[in-house]
Design a protein around this nucleic acid. Sequence first.
DNA 1: CCAGTTTTGAACTGATCGATACACAATCTG
DNA 2: CAGATTGTGTATCGATCAGTTCAAAACTGG
Lengths: 194, 194
Amino acid sequence: MARPREFDETAAVEKAMHAFWEHGYEATSTQDLCDATGLGRSSVYNTFTSKRALFGRSLAHYTSTQLDKRQAILDGPGTAAERLTAVLDSAIEDDLEEHRRGCLVVNTLAELGVPDDEVGAALQADTDRNLAMFAECVREGVLDGSLRDGLDPADVAEYLLSTTSGLRVMARRGTSRDRMHAVADIALSAIVAR
Amino acid sequence: MARPREFDETAAVEKAMHAFWEHGYEATSTQDLCDATGLGRSSVYNTFTSKRALFGRSLAHYTSTQLDKRQAILDGPGTAAERLTAVLDSAIEDDLEEHRRGCLVVNTLAELGVPDDEVGAALQADTDRNLAMFAECVREGVLDGSLRDGLDPADVAEYLLSTTSGLRVMARRGTSRDRMHAVADIALSAIVAR
DNA sequence: CCAGTTTTGAACTGATCGATACACAATCTG
DNA sequence: CAGATTGTGTATCGATCAGTTCAAAACTGG
């Protein structure tokens, strides 16, 4: 083609993601996005079409990173119960760093719901992948004996996703690390083998 | 004094609350508030000072209503475990009606965090009152034998608030009523007496 | 009916919103 | 180097933002 880009597209998406994460979708102006990415307006619109589309890209980047991290923990060593504990601990640590901005997915769900566009599609995909990952781990846990017998993997997956979502809201309320760990302990006690 | 108001202030706050609830704080314009309340701009600003202050009033009205409703259930008949079940069921029903707009408190926490103003104060007050109500019920449950021995009321209160917050996020994800009830069942199974 | 007080409606403020137009710079292919 | 193509910077678009101004309207106590 012709003139090449003077910036890295993925790096720009990442910087935009942090801007959206910090202030939310509506409260982040296109000027904020230019400032955050270091790009001019033309470059932003030429590359990403619209604020909405850039948000979609940012959200997809966020969910991809987050899900990969979670998958890595669930694919790691230990019993299913231990791995689920590690997932909750990791979620709590994520919530506490980064100026307590919470989780971009939860924040977006709260602000926009599941809109009928690429943003909603990214949110739905995130929900589905989380549920699939959790359900698979629950099945493993029933087999390895670390989780209780008779658990419904789909229901428990929904329970675990609800639990992590709840923890992320608690983080925004200002709950302390110790309390969040106590909450996670109680939550897991409902499903670990006795 | 002089010329009387042509509208009911509380009714106006309630209408404004629904507008904020439906679209979020940032996405609700002052024009939207005029339309929703049926008031002119002058009346809105003369009565409520600013969009932010009206949001604070709307949020306080919401939390007050919600907390009173929850308190009524917790003050009702039945064991503590039964009353907590009723609270979660009520929260689920609330989440499902009203076009799945979720919970105004959770939505606001996600969008704004806990800002250093009247809005943040309303959010903090809501958190504190919820925790106090739950903790008291947990104490009663340990005494009446419907909840497990040795539970820490403060931790379990935080757990219950986290659970309801998580359910409200799940509602925004589009989770079905049956699944939400299944999640609530699992959540309660962690603390009910065996 | 009148002075005093408050509410109300309409017009309007400067600022900012998301997005575009367009000239020009920078690179590619030939 | 020529011509095509794409990226970038600046200036700007109309719309909308939250909030103000101001005079007419509607009430009060006297």
